[in-house]
Design a protein around this nucleic acid. Structure first.
Lengths: 136, 136
DNA sequence: GGAGGATGGTCAAGCCGCTTGTCTGACCTC
DNA sequence: GAGGTCAGACAAGCGGCTTGACCATCCTCC
């Protein structure tokens, strides 16, 4: 885990200064058309405040833009910028590389099983009941 | 994960008030004959200070006793008390139950594979190089 | 066409778990 | 002994989150 963080922080040092794990997670959650802060909050399991704090440096760094929601005067819409997409893609690339390394180390089939098991056991997007795929 | 924490915190509420994840982790690390704080620190990857802080409530609650090390006047030896052992065993019981549930949900064999893969990939006790068991 | 409540977001304060920095005292070597 | 190293303590601070109080907008329903 720390392995991953170190990897991603190297990316931050090289190309995306100041970005932390939570920022990358946040970028990865953003749908193409943007999303409301409070929906992001419930999806991520964080409070609106925590999210707003994480969002501030992303906006300041030009990774996301925050616009008023035309359909609701209270709401703010968070959307990836081009730079934000770059960061997200870079992260995904690194994560893929790490996973490929893991798979190589433990064997492709075994790794695939482990990954599937983890997916089965992982709770879905915050609050929803944990999926139960294999019962018998 | 949060599932585990909730489970353990219920244990805290019922029988071991004030104990947090880090305390249970710490109890689980203590060998029968006790261990030095600074060795615990290096093994756990935490600083001595962080460890000393986690230790304070454990000592206050009677889960561990801290004795002077007869072989070194600077060192302090941390050792489980009876109550500490009780807490540790209770935790292990809960963790086993959680794991049995997971295994039931995803299938025993698949779970066994996942567990082994994770063990292969997990870094050893802090700082040591990650073990590589299966190469081909 | 308000009144009252729900919802989206902000501001402020604080907690928890950890770190860095500085220090003291015991130990070890030469 | 003198110098350096090691075990641990004390103090301050930080990162990431929470809770609590608040304002503005929206929705509903009499």
């Amino acid at each position: 885990m720390t392995r991953i963080r170190d990897d991603l922080y190297a990316l931050s040092d090289a190309r995306f200064p100041g970005l932390r794990m939570r920022h990358y997670r946040l970028l990865a959650m953003l749908p193409p058309d943007g999303e409301r802060l409070s929906r992001l909050a419930t999806h991520s399991g964080l409070t609106k405040q925590a999210l707003a704090q994480a969002l501030a440096p992303l906006e300041a760094g030009g990774y996301v833009e925050v616009l008023p929601d035309p359909s609701d005067g209270r709401a703010r819409l968070v959307r990836l910028t081009h730079r934000g997409r770059e960061a997200d893609e870079a992260v995904r690339g690194r994560l893929d590389a790490v996973e490929r390394d893991w798979a190589r180390r433990v064997g492709e089939e075994r790794y695939a099983v482990a990954r599937a098991v983890l997916a089965d056991l992982a709770p879905g997007p915050a609050g929803s009941p944990a999926p139960v795929t294999v019962e018998a």
